[in-house]
Design a protein around this nucleic acid. Structure first.
Lengths: 172, 172
DNA sequence: TGATAATTGTTATTCACTATATCAAATATC
DNA sequence: GATATTTGATATAGTGAATAACAATTATCA
């Protein structure tokens, strides 16, 4: 088949003939996702984007991205670690972690200290401000963000989902 | 508390004293994720990355990214649509969709045809090659990618997960 | 009808995130 | 003590996502 270079438009579900008013927000005449809605990866990504958006909204007064929050949380749970260790557990490449730390350190949320054992490495420490911000962030995340997730999914589903996602992140 | 600028390294779970051999791949002395493992968004993102990696592996002979696959699939399911409609349903911004289409059209997987109704818009069409590639891609995705997901999660969990993710992508 | 607004595809540009190679300083290995 | 490895860092490139602006076309409506 050779394709002609023009074409009369195909069957539009003719928005003008529709009876029920279409959702004005995500309208677009409702295209058929088809097999796409059965693709786990597709829904996974779209859900992830939505969840991150909500995270940003909930924690907006503190100006923390999910990645930054995860760093602060990890520092709090693992004192005495260096950049490589923190970056690796978060799946961040060392070169990219430098600028990220510069940002956090520039806002006085954490600090690098030269290790006395190994003078190559920087031990990462939460500052007092970092601890305070983290504490407030945790409250916002749990009371707003996670609370909303719980509400939409229900506690049982939320737990089941968490377990499955962790399994995928681990074994896949 | 003012932070001194150096510090003796804190309690390392002393890798040297461990009895069981640590997983050499993701080692890093097993940092404590702490509250991070309870954050749905965190696991969601890590799982999504793993799933997309697997998708790329499975469909590697066809050199299709998840985004490209989704475009081809959508074109097949929705003939006669223009760029704006396709881009919008996939959450791709129109300006960014241009280069993406250039790539697909350059590989002769789809084509833009000027609409006779509205000479501004381009109706998107799958080429024969595009249909053939899509068919092969679908087989690879279902026999390798989705099959693996099924195997890891189990059919029931897979279905439950899909439903929850769709709900999040929709209502969140 | 004709002036004005809106839409479509496009370009340019910016920002964030990711990835690789490379480097000097410090440490480990043998 | 020579060589290799590790650590933080820099430079750089690639990709995705976001906004503004533009020409061509179509829609609106006074």
């Amino acid at each position: 088949m050779t394709v002609s270079k023009t074409a009369a438009d195909a069957v539009r579900p003719s928005r003008s003939l529709r009876k029920e008013p279409v959702d004005p927000a995500l309208d677009d005449s409702m295209l058929q996702l088809g097999e796409l809605s059965g693709l786990l990866g597709y829904s996974l990504k779209r859900a992830q984007l939505k969840v991150f958006e909500d995270f940003l909204r909930c924690v907006e007064p503190l100006q923390l991205t999910p990645a930054q929050f995860s760093v602060l949380l990890l520092l709090d749970n693992n004192p005495g670690r260096n950049q490589t260790e923190i970056a690796n557990t978060l799946g961040i490449l060392r070169p990219n972690f430098v600028a990220m730390l510069d940002g956090l350190e520039g806002r006085d949320l954490c600090a690098r200290m030269r290790s006395t054992n190994d003078r190559r490495s920087h031990i990462l420490v939460l500052t007092d401000k970092g601890r305070a911000v983290l504490a407030r962030a945790k409250k916002l995340v749990s009371s707003k963000h996670e609370a909303r997730l719980m509400e939409v999914l229900g506690p049982a589903n939320h737990a089941a989902m968490l377990e499955m996602l962790a399994k995928l992140a681990r074994e896949f």
